[in-house]
Nucleic acid binder design. Structure first.
Length: 397
DNA sequence: AATCCACAGGAAGTGCTGGGCG
DNA sequence: CGCCCAGCACTTCCTGTGGATT
């Protein structure tokens, strides 16, 4: 059937009312189970409303723990105060990943007419300082995914120095990161000025996730399409996997899409479970295709061997799954490399590769116990061999 | 008991890259 | 700007280990 825009805009389908409610960018009316965190952020920024410089703040938390959304909500609340003396700028550092780009963004937020390019950093910097000083403004910069900024040390240094330069007004930063280790990479001076306050966002538990999902389901799905049990399962799965709300929401989205493509009128527990598998495979697909070439080749060889119906030394594990000799997989791997005109890696390094693949959760290895001569290592793929082959064949062209 | 198998993993060495420093 | 050194990715070589085989 010819595609229509209505269909693409997802009008009139039997499952969804509004898919976008399940997207990570959607901002709900009220943020559940983040009152304490909101309060902390707000109390850090409150001084700005009294004309004082707020503390620089660093927010930690795993993905899907509500960091960005809370920060955005606080900016909105600041804006709602109609206090002309405070202005907030939210930026994602994946997009604005250097000192220059960040200042550029701030300037264009203040004044859309300024030409986008052609100004040096110091010109833009002066503009910001000037603006803040003449209007005696307090600028709150929210830097999401702050760990990807290339010259973070100089950025922090510049901004802290700016406060010394300013006769009126101030600049303060709210950094958001999901890497606990990133603080160590900063030098001591910028660390202490960036981390005046620290807020940690704990992951959601199953009950909290249930509440969050319950809040969005009536808006996202048509009435009575998704049953409570499906919602609970999605919440439980996500809670088990590090309490990621974003993940819980994609599970529901995928489950709905699955039901839709199967022409069903309801989303059952089965679809939610299938969505989990699909999400898992998506992640694996991404992981595999980002792997170095020879890791892919090793995994590919394992997939090929595991499909070999003539494989002689069959061993099975407790669950009746086939296991394969790592040495045979190595032979297959080096044969394949030669066929492709590539030098195979040494057997020693191949062992390191196996470890790496195992820690990445792409294969499982066990030591052969009794019954097999020597200390053989037996391996098996975690994902279906045909899917592994497909991904790698596509990727290696 | 001696030998062989199928590995594990440490040690030392090599070739390349990138970053800091004079 | 060239130089040096650290770190990385990998190789070669080697010793060790537990069970099967002879």
């Amino acid at each position: 059937m010819e595609p229509t825009f209505d269909e693409l805009l997802n009008k009139g389908d039997a499952i969804f009312k509004d898919k976008s409610v399940l997207s990570p960018h959607y901002v709900p009316e009220t943020l559940l189970h983040r009152e304490a965190e909101l309060r902390k952020i707000m109390s850090c920024l409150a001084p700005a409303l009294q004309g004082k410089k707020p503390s620089n703040t660093l927010i930690y938390g795993k993905t899907g723990s509500g960091k960005s959304i809370c920060a955005k909500r606080v900016l909105q609340k600041l804006y709602d105060q109609k206090e002309a003396s405070v202005s907030g700028v939210y930026l994602n550092c994946r997009v604005y990943d250097s000192r220059y780009k960040i200042v550029q963004k701030v300037v264009s937020d203040f004044d859309a007419d300024v030409a986008k390019t052609g100004h040096s950093f110091s010109v833009l910097y002066e503009k910001v300082i000037d603006k803040l000083e003449t209007e005696s403004k307090h600028l709150v910069l929210v830097l999401d995914e702050i760990d990807v900024v290339k010259d973070l040390d100089t950025l922090v240094y510049t901004l802290t120095r700016a406060n010394d330069d300013l006769k009126a007004g101030s600049i303060s930063m709210v950094g958001i990161s999901n890497k606990v280790t990133f603080k160590q990479k900063l030098d001591a001076r910028s660390r202490s000025s960036l981390c005046e306050e620290e807020i940690v966002f704990p992951p959601y538990n199953a009950l909290q996730l249930e509440a969050i999902l319950s809040q969005r389901v009536p808006l996202a799905f048509r009435d009575n399409v998704l049953e409570q049990s499906g919602l609970n399962i999605a919440a439980a799965i996500a809670a088990g996997e590090s309490g990621d709300a974003r993940y819980a929401l994609t599970l529901l989205l995928k489950a709905g899409e699955l039901a839709l493509s199967r022409g069903m009128k309801k989303v059952s527990d089965k679809e939610v479970e299938a969505a989990r598998v699909a999400a898992d495979e998506d992640k694996a697909r991404e992981l595999i295709s980002s792997l170095p070439e020879h890791l892919q080749l090793v995994l590919y060889s394992l997939a090929v061997v595991s499909q070999d119906v003539q494989y002689k030394r069959l061993v099975e594990d407790d669950d009746g799954q086939k296991l394969f000799f790592s040495g045979e997989v190595y032979d297959r791997y080096s044969a394949m490399c030669k066929k492709m005109g590539k030098e195979p890696r040494s057997a020693r390094w191949y062992r390191e590769y196996l470890h790496e693949l195992e820690t990445l959760g792409l294969l499982i290895s066990v030591h052969s116990g009794k019954g097999i001569r020597g200390q053989a290592t037996l391996i098996k793929p975690v994902y279906p061999a045909d899917k592994i082959r497909k991904v790698i064949e596509e990727n290696l062209k």
